[in-house]
Amino acid sequence: MSSSTPHALAESLCILTLKSGIWVLFPITVVMIMVGILRHYIVLMLQSPPKKQPRAAIREQRALIRSQIIRATSANSPIPPTYYKSISQHLSQAFADGTYLKDGPPKGDAPAPTAPNPLTDPAAMDGMMAGMKTQMVMMVPQMVIMGWINFFFQGFVLIKLPFPLTLGFKSMLQRGVETPDMDVRWVSSLSWYFLNFFGLNGLYRLILGGENSADSSRDMTTPFAAAANIAQPGQAQDFNKLFKAERDNLEFAEGLYSWVGKDVDTRILKKYGRLPGEVPR
């Protein structure tokens, strides 16, 4: 015993704990998988179905698409000039008058509508609450598991990796075991928890399919992304302003307009070799 170096001593201690380590290694993994799956189903239950929008709101949102569609083909438009002009000018007029606005055309002297405060707007509040709920479902079980591991298995060494590693991995694999001399190949319980935490996503995808919400490491990397995503549509866009801007685009597209059928007669005749100019293939 006196001849053994501290290093060897640690090694033999590790082998001792390794035997019990097997009984910790698998429970941690199994518990984490179970919690992940449970979390997936809880999130599914918490998700409220998307709110149905009234007809007028949809009309307002989609009005811009109309102008985008007519602009998309304007340089080689499929429709003849009179029809193009009538559609384009009708749209432009409607945008100017605010026909497509949800609440009807704006009054002349009414103050410009300000974007509602997301904290007082109940619609936006719902979205934020949903984000918070998901966050809670993620945070709470992870905190519980981490506390459980820290309390019962602190300093446990669970497995020995079958390959050598450099010293740099020490902080990754031996968290919670502050022993400078121990071989890097030993993995501590807390480190095993973190490895699972970041590595189980692939397994969840196998079990629950691609669009699962079991993986908590994703939320961890972008803590407020989920909440921000949901809050976004709640933010009021000023469609009146958007419509006014779109009028310029429409005018520009009208300048570019040319009908696909404008010279189609000459084109066909050339193609069929009835007109000099282009040699038919």
């Binding site: 003849p80 696909v260 059928g261 404008k262 189609v264 193609k271």
Partner: peptide, 12 residues
């Protein structure tokens, strides 16, 4: 005339 141009577009 419009019809003719459209028919030709279909041919094209």
């Amino acid at each position: 005339t419009l019809s003719l141009k459209m028919f030709l577009t279909v041919v094209d």
